[in-house]
């Protein structure tokens, strides 16, 4: 309808000044909608803020040197989370060592070597894995790595955490490899570089900062997992360094156990450990987001 003839007769300028009932109604509906969506936005942020505030208040008060350096003592005699801190470090480290190469290589296969349909199937499997309840991964690891040995052990815990990390690493790596421009691959191949060297030294190297971010996020995710550790690593009141065939403690397990104790001292320690976990996850996220913001600005 571009005939040039206006569909409606133009209203005179004076009509703009007079507000009708319809105008007022529209203003009210608009205001209501704004208010409701604002409340929803607040409801979205409040739980996070409340959790952070609660953990910081309760946890910071429980933070002291003995929490970091001592073993748990029985029957409400206090002590600390040293066994849990050292256990988390070892198990998460081992899980990262297992999961990082698998996740990165799987992503390289999906992006560089496979057909689109196969890549889609791999991506779908990884997405499903990310959504699998972690208790299922725990019972799987329990059946495979604990039952045959009649022994709760740290390796089973690490393997369970690695299963959780692999799809996270794979998906973030895949995303960052897909962002690497095709000309760089062509440039490398045209120089007579084999495909595998191109994948490693050009594509992976160019996308490396995104890949590292993904690994760190996966580490943060694994550090906070409780369910897969309950019946694999089990937990341990005593420091276990290096004896991976035996039960080992971890920060989430420590929180789980001590929060249920009838002794206020130990409840406070659970808050302290929760604070340490939160701090770790927060720091990792700030580093990763900060890096990706900076690289986008570049």
């Amino acid at each position: 309808m571009t005939t040039g003839v206006p569909v409606m007769a133009p209203s005179s300028a004076s009509a703009l000044l007079a507000s009708s009932a319809a105008d007022r109604r529209r203003g009210i509906v608009n205001g209501l909608f704004l208010a409701v969506s604002f409340v929803a936005a607040v409801a979205c942020v409040v739980p996070l803020a409340a959790i952070v505030a609660y953990v910081v208040i309760k946890g910071a008060a429980a933070l002291n040197l003995s929490l970091l350096t001592q073993e748990t003592r029985a029957l409400g005699l206090g002590g600390g989370a040293a066994a849990a801190i050292l256990g988390s470090l070892q198990m998460v480290f081992l899980a990262a060592v297992i999961a990082t190469p698998i996740g990165i290589l799987a992503a390289i296969y999906a992006v560089e070597f496979s057909e689109r349909r196969v890549a889609g199937a791999i991506r779908f499997a990884a997405d499903v894995m990310v959504g699998v309840p972690s208790i299922l991964i725990g019972i799987f690891a329990f059946t495979l790595f604990v039952l045959p040995f009649h022994q709760f052990n740290a390796v089973a815990g690490s393997l369970a955490l690695a299963i959780i990390m692999v799809p996270v690493v794979m998906r973030t790596t895949e995303e960052s490899l897909r962002l690497v421009p095709g000309d760089l691959r062509e440039a490398s191949l045209a120089l007579g570089a084999p495909v595998w060297r191109t994948a490693l030294s050009v594509v992976l190297r160019t996308g490396l900062s995104g890949v590292l971010g993904g690994v760190m996020l996966a580490v943060a995710r694994a550090a906070g997992e409780t369910a897969p550790l309950i019946f694999t690593a089990l937990g341990n009141q005593h420091v276990n360094v290096g004896n991976l065939g035996k039960p080992m403690d971890a920060l989430p397990l420590f929180v789980f156990v001590n929060a249920r104790q009838p002794y206020p001292v130990q409840n406070a320690q659970a808050w302290g450990a929760a604070f340490l976990l939160l701090l770790f996850v927060f720091v990792v996220n700030v580093i990763v987001r900060g890096r990706s913001l900076r690289s986008r600005a570049r």
Binding site: D183, E186, A187, A190, L191, G192, A193, R197, S201, T206
Partner: peptide, 27 residues
């Protein structure tokens, strides 16, 4: 049989030096 492309495509993670020798290092 080497090739030069329409859009200049130096490897962004590499220095000038490393770009020049990239073909040798990659092979």
């Amino acid at each position: 049989v080497g090739m030069v492309f329409q859009r200049a495509n130096p490897f962004p993670t590499m220095s000038i030096y490393d770009n020049v020798v990239a073909g040798l290092r990659l092979t």
